[in-house]
């Protein structure tokens, strides 16, 4: 039981991770895949940030009378990772817009059908 409650932050991260991952794999709609990818990445952000928490620690700002701080380094790392995540999302959505223009659909199976219709070097 203690494993379940003491480390509930990790369970939240794992739950989100699996939700996101499953969405990416199972959905045929490209935008939904990007959403899944975002949830997947967000779970990793939460994992890093909860990692940084120190029992009884204050926010990492120098203040008189405070001895124990949370570790600020993972926060900084995740700021960078969030920027990377936003760039990935932006690029993914930009590609989806172009795909929509070129194919008229953002459903994976319809795109595959359209590709098979123009034939030649499609993958079996």
């Amino acid at each position: 039981m203690s494993l379940l409650f003491e480390h509930y932050n990790y369970w939240v991260a794992i739950f989100l991770m699996m939700t996101g991952f499953y969405t990416v794999i199972s959905r045929g709609n490209l935008v939904k895949q990007v959403v899944g990818l975002n949830i997947f990445q967000a779970s990793v952000f939460i994992f890093y940030i909860s990692l940084a928490y120190v029992d009884g620690g204050a926010t990492p700002i120098v203040k008189e009378g405070v001895e124990v701080y949370a570790n600020p380094l993972p926060h900084v790392l995740i700021l960078t990772a969030i920027v990377v995540g936003i760039a990935t999302t932006a690029l993914g959505l930009a590609l989806i817009v172009r795909i929509k223009e070129a194919y008229g659909t953002i459903e994976e199976d319809e795109i595959r059908e359209a590709d098979q219709r123009d034939g030649k070097d499609s993958d079996a």
């Binding site: 895949q33 990818l37 990445q41 990935t88 993914g92 590609l95 989806i96 172009r98 795909i99 590709d115």
Partner: peptide, 15 residues
């Protein structure tokens, strides 16, 4: 198809 290939690579690569 370059667009779809790039998108697929984006999903795989990001994971």
């Amino acid at each position: 198809r370059a667009l779809v290939s790039a998108y697929q690579y984006l999903i795989f690569g990001t994971i």
